[in-house]
Design a protein around this nucleic acid. Structure first.
Length: 203
DNA sequence: CCACGGATTGGCT
DNA sequence: GCCAATCCGTGGA
């Protein structure tokens, strides 16, 4: 594993402003350690959501059973089900009462590629040319990692899912654009991705 | 109870 | 590029 500084991110990292955390999440390693097998991937694409100003956020219309984890402290996992088929996972940010989170839209596999391929396609990937299809999208990341509603509310400091610190991606390697797949608050440039990385869902 | 539509994906034109 | 598939959370009656 190509990890230079394998230290778990702590609570204070997540409790900051959602846009700051979104930026800094790029390049960090997402780990799922549930049982003997480790799955790991470098975060390459994210989107920020903030219910206080952002109509596209699930928290915009107040607290419900589905979104309540987003209103708690940062450093927890918000997993939701959508389009009758897909799970998407988010990193909750901020402090108590802030309905903010960062959607993980793309990761570059670091460890457990075989398992990810099996989770996605039911078989081992054959060609290098298709490898990017493993995890270049929010639903794909969850399917590859086996993330479902069982992980709703997982504590990223003491749980089966956590992040490892890595050097910050330089600003000139980060692209900032509008978010994908939403109909409201489309003017906000709250999507961030690592330039030229093949595991970004789209330009 | 019922209707609506979604932070997506993959297949087909 | 377009569009159907397919649950279920949410809100209103």
């Amino acid at each position: 594993m190509n990890i230079s500084n394998p230290k778990k991110l702590n609570r204070s990292f997540y409790k900051r402003d959602v846009l700051t955390v979104a930026h800094e999440l790029l390049g960090k390693i997402l780990i799922k350690a549930d049982g003997p097998e480790i799955l790991a991937g470098k975060i390459v694409e994210v989107e920020a959501y903030d219910g206080s100003v952002d109509e596209a956020a699930h928290t915009f219309q107040g607290k419900t059973k589905r979104n309540e984890i987003m209103f708690g402290n940062g450093g927890y996992f918000y997993v939701y089900f959508t389009y009758g088929a897909h799970f998407c996972c988010n990193i909750v940010t901020g402090t108590e009462g802030h309905g903010t989170a960062v959607l993980i839209r793309g990761v570059e596999p670091v460890e457990g590629v075989e398992r990810m391929s099996f989770n996605r396609f039911g078989k081992n990937l054959l060609n290098e040319a298709e490898k990017h299809k493993l995890t270049n999208g929010p639903g794909k990341v969850c399917q590859a990692f086996g993330i479902n509603r069982e992980y709703y509310g997982e504590d990223l400091i003491n749980g089966r899912i956590y992040l490892l610190n890595q050097r910050r991606i330089p600003a000139d390697r980060i692209v900032k654009t509008t978010r994908i797949g939403i109909k409201k608050s489309t003017e906000l440039d709250w999507r961030f991705y690592i330039k030229d990385n093949p595991f970004v869902s789209r330009k």
